[in-house]
């Protein structure tokens, strides 16, 4: 197998818009393994791609279909793991103790500071910390790929995790600007409206802290900041 063959496979995968590490590496190895074991040694890589690889996947669209189905499965698995972690903080012993301690701390903070400020600080830090970690990791990964001259620049797993890490900021925006206005009208600001009921302010604060804990735990479990090899 020549360097030219390898470049042809890289170009082929890029032409199919395969740009994330996981699927790219798997397909690259599959194609080259198949090419190395070809029966007809006179068959060149272009013919092998056209006559052996593509039909096995059901055409170029078939390869893209496999990639998309993997992305969907990964997204589903991440959301399921996030849901399990989140529920463990609400219903599982002894993790439910953490939730109770968080609620108590927020209750105490409300006695020391204005509930509106407490809610604002908790919401922003809980939304921004996981998002910043995820984004920072993605940027580091991107530069690592560039430095090592990889034919891809992202990891699909990281992309899926960034989606979940960005939910907090979007949720904060929707709650404060849309939900609050819809319930209380425009006479009150979102923060003020949510803080006027202490049970609501404490519940919302606890949920945001739990969200941050869940996302940080997910990033710790799955996040790729270094290239596999």
């Amino acid at each position: 197998m020549t360097k030219k063959d390898q470049i042809t496979v890289v170009k082929y995968l890029k032409s199919l818009d395969i740009r994330s590490m996981e699927f790219f590496e798997e397909m690259y190895d599959h194609i080259l393994s198949s090419f190395q074991s070809r029966k007809d040694l006179n068959q060149n890589i272009d013919v092998h791609l056209r006559d052996v690889v593509q039909p096995g996947f059901g055409g170029a669209k078939g390869i893209q279909r496999v990639m998309k189905s993997q992305q969907k499965l990964r997204q589903k698995a991440i959301f399921k793991r996030a849901k399990d972690l989140f529920l463990s903080y609400l219903i599982s012993w002894p993790t439910v103790l953490i939730t109770m301690v968080i609620a108590l701390v927020i209750f105490q903070l409300n006695a020391l500071f204005r509930p509106k400020d407490v809610l604002l600080i908790i919401m922003t830090t809980s939304a921004l910390i996981p998002a910043s970690i995820a984004l920072g990791g993605q940027i580091k990964f991107y530069f690592d790929c560039k430095r090592q001259n990889k034919p891809y620049s992202s990891s699909d797993l990281n992309k899926r995790l960034l989606l979940i890490a960005a939910i907090g900021t979007n949720l904060m925006n929707v709650l404060l600007n849309v939900v609050a206005k819809f319930i209380w009208g425009s006479q009150k600001g979102g923060l003020e409206a949510f803080s006027s009921y202490s049970w609501l302010q404490i519940t919302l604060s606890v949920l945001f802290v739990l969200y941050a804990l869940v996302v940080i735990q997910l990033l710790k479990e799955k996040f790729i900041t270094k290239l596999a090899i």
Partner: peptide
Amino acid sequence: ITEGALYPTLHKLEA
């Protein structure tokens, strides 16, 4: 076994 059937199966079992 075609690759178009194998890889989705492997990815599903992994998920």
